[in-house]
Nucleic acid binder design. Structure first.
Lengths: 348, 348
DNA sequence: CGCTCGCACTAGAACGTTCCAACGGTACGT
DNA sequence: ACGTACCGTTGGAACGTTCTAGTGCGAGCG
C-alpha cells in the first residue's frame, strides 16, 4: 500500500513529486519540503496531514533536484586501486565494507572510482568534485609520498585521510592506527613467551608506515635492554622477500622469533620455516600485521596485529560530517589502537 | 593551466557553467551542450571555439543538473553485505574491484550501499531507485532464494545479476560462472593424477550453487565409470565443518582426494590432514573453489577453481548499458568458464 | 488603540542542465 | 521563381527541489 508508482495516462510510470504531495495535503511545496527537512517548523496537525500524503503517494525526494539546489550530493568518493593478488592485504576491502556501514548512519553513500593511473594523482578526483558528483573524499593511500593529499589540499577539496600525513606541512583531518603500538604489543607478547632474540622483517626505509611499525619493535626491545643489531631486515612487501629475509636472518642471527610488518612477509617466514622443517610457534614464533582472513585459516593460525577498521570508518565519517557542515578545516588527527590477535604461530 | 577555479567577488569559489562557456565562445548554451554530447552537430570551427572556451575555463558539466534533466545518474548500485571474517570468500571483493574498472570504461560509477538487513530485500534498493540516486543495480546474492531479484523484477527496476536465476520464472539478464565446469575440471585433473577415490565436500542441498558444483564432480566421476556412493558430504560453509567432514570421509570411505565447493571447506580438509600428519598433495590431494588470496599463500599452495570476475564485470556492465539504452528487457544470460589453478595441494 | 513581534505558511526565483520548437540561410528539385 | 528540405544554431521551457523574501494573523505591550 502506498508503494505503487503513480501512473500517467500513456501507461508509462512516473514518480510523485513535491507538488503532488502538496496538492494532496492542501499546502505549498515549501511546506512539504519543511515537513521533510525541518519538521519542527510545522504545526502538529499540518505535519500529520503532509506525512499522510507522503505515505499515501509513496513519495521519495528526488536526489538530483535536491543535489542541484543544495550543491551537495551526500556521496563520499573512494578511490579503489586494482585488486592486489599476490599480497595478503585485505585491509582495504575490510575498510570498504566498514565505510559502507558507517556512512549509512550519516545518510551518506560511498561512490567508488578507479585508481588505475597512479601517475596522475588528480585523475578521477578532479572531475568528480568539479562535477559535484561527490561532496568529499576518503583518501587511503597517503603512504606513497601522498601526492593526492597535497593535490586535494591545494584545490580546497574536502577530504579525510585514513593514514597520517607523513609530510610535515599537511593540514587535513586524518584517522590512523598506531602501527608502532601494534608491533610493540607483538614484541612484548613474544618477550613474555620467553623469546629474547626477536628479529624484524619490514619494508624499505622510504615507507613511513614501515618505519613506524619498526619503531614499535625496536623501542620495546631496547626497553627490555635487548639489542637489535643485526636482527632487522628491510625488503619488498612480497612472499618471496619474506622467505629470503627469514633465511638470511636464521643463518646469520639465529632469532627464535620474527615480528613482521605485514601478513605477507609473515607468510614468507612461515614458508621458510616449513622448508627447514621448523614448526611455527614451537620452534620459531612469528607475528604478522593486518590480520588478513588467511591468518586465522592457516593450520595453527598466524598471530597478527588487527587494525580496527570499523572504528576507523566511523571516525572518518564523523570527521567528514563535521568538515562538510561546519566548513572548518582543522587539521586534527586521531590515532587508534590496534589489537594483537594471538594464534598458534606464536605460542608453544 | 585552465584548471583554476573561477573566483567571484567575495572570495568564495564557484565553478564555471554552461552559460559562462557560451558567453566566452559567443554561442548559445545549447550549442555548448551539443559540443559535449553531440559534437557532430556543430560546424568544425564552432566546435573548436567552444572547446577552447571549455579548456580555458576548466569547465566540467554539473552532474546534478544533468541528472535532473535526463533522469539518470550514471550510477550503478551494489549492495555490500558486512565483511565475512570466518570464510575465505574474497570473490565479492575481487568483483567490486573489477566492477569499478569495468564501469569506468562505460562512464558509470559504482555506488555502494548497505545490506545489513537481509530480512527486507527491498531495504535500500527501493529508496535509491525512487530517488533517482542510481540507474540500475548489480545483484550478487541471487543464491538464497533471491528475494531481491523477484522484488526488483516486480518493481520494474533495471538490474543485472551476477549469478543465474535459480527460480524458473525469472526474466532478467544475468552473467554467471559455470561452477559445474570448474569442479569437473578439478575432478578431471585429479583423475589424471591417478586418483580414483575422489570425495566431495559441498554445501547443503538447498543451495543451487552448491548442487551445481557438485554436479560437475559427480558427472565427471560417472563419466569415468567411477562410483560416488558414500563419497559425498554436505555441510555448512565453514572451516570446522570441513574438518569434520574430511575426518568422517577419511575414516569411512578412504578417499585419496577431495574436491571442495569452497576454499573455506578445502581449508578444513587441510587442517584435518595436518592433524593426521598427512601431507597435502603427496598423501591426499585437495582442491578448493574461488581461489582466495590465501590459496596461493599457503605453504605449497591450494589448487582452486578461479572465477573470471573481471570478465563477469565487463559482461555485467555491457548488459547494463544495453538495458539502460534500449530499454529492452531480454532475459538472456551468459555462462563463463572458470579456470583451474593447479598448486601443490593436488600434485605429488 | 496602534505598534511590533513571532508563528505558520506561501509565492516566486534560482540551481545548471537538456528538451523542444523554431529560426535564418543555403541548396535543391520542379 | 517558388516550395521544400536540411543544416547549424538559438531562446525559452522544463526537470524537482530549496532559498529568499515575504504574507496574514494573533498575541503582547506601551
Amino acid at each position: 500500500m502506498g508503494r505503487e508508482l503513480h501512473r500517467v495516462q500513456d501507461g508509462a510510470t512516473s514518480l510523485p513529486t513535491l507538488a503532488d504531495v502538496a496538492a494532496m495535503a492542501g499546502v505549498s511545496r515549501q511546506t512539504v519540503s519543511n515537513a521533510l527537512n525541518n519538521p519542527s517548523l510545522l504545526r502538529a496537525d499540518t505535519l500529520e496531514r503532509v506525512r499522510a500524503a507522503i505515505a499515501h503517494l509513496g513519495y521519495t525526494p528526488n536526489r538530483a533536484a535536491r543535489n542541484l539546489r543544495t550543491k551537495s550530493s551526500r556521496l563520499i568518493g573512494l578511490r579503489l586501486t586494482p585488486f592486489a593478488e599476490d599480497t595478503a592485504n585485505a585491509t582495504i576491502d575490510r575498510f570498504v565494507h566498514a565505510l559502507v556501514q558507517a556512512t549509512r548512519a550519516a545518510d551518506y553513500h560511498v561512490l567508488l572510482f578507479d585508481g588505475n593511473d597512479p601517475a596522475d594523482p588528480s585523475s578521477g578526483y578532479d572531475d568528480l568534485v568539479r562535477s559535484t558528483a561527490v561532496d568529499a573524499f576518503v583518501v587511503t593511500d597517503t603512504f606513497k609520498g601522498s601526492p593526492q593529499a597535497a593535490y586535494l589540499e591545494d584545490g580546497g577539496v574536502p577530504f579525510v585521510a585514513f593514514g597520517r600525513p607523513w609530510t610535515p606541512a599537511a593540514l587535513h583531518p586524518w584517522v590512523d592506527v598506531d602501527g608502532a603500538a601494534g608491533t610493540s604489543a607483538a614484541t612484548a607478547h613474544l618477550l613474555a613467551q620467553g623469546h629474547t632474540r626477536i628479529a624484524w622483517i619490514g619494508w624499505r626505509k622510504d615507507s613511513p608506515i614501515g618505519e613506524d611499525r619498526r619503531a614499535g619493535w625496536s623501542r620495546t626491545m631496547h626497553g627490555h635492554g635487548l639489542p637489535t643489531t643485526g636482527l632487522a631486515s628491510r625488503v619488498e612487501d612480497c612472499v618471496a622477500s619474506g622467505v629470503e629475509a627469514a633465511g638470511v636472518l636464521l643463518d646469520e642471527a639465529r632469532p627464535t622469533a620474527f615480528v613482521c610488518a605485514s601478513d605477507t612477509l609473515a607468510t614468507g617466514v612461515l614458508h621458510q620455516l616449513h622448508a627447514r622443517g621448523l614448526r611455527p610457534g614451537r620452534d620459531v614464533a612469528v607475528t604478522g600485521f593486518d590480520d588478513a582472513p588467511f591468518a586465522q585459516l592457516l593450520p595453527g593460525g598466524l598471530t597478527s596485529v588487527r587494525q580496527p577498521v570499523e572504528e576507523v570508518a566511523v571516525q572518518v565519517v564523523d570527521r567528514l560530517g563535521k568538515l562538510l557542515t561546519h566548513r572548518e578545516v582543522f587539521a586534527s588527527g586521531t590515532l587508534l589502537e590496534p589489537t594483537l590477535v594471538v594464534r598458534g604461530s606464536s605460542e608453544r
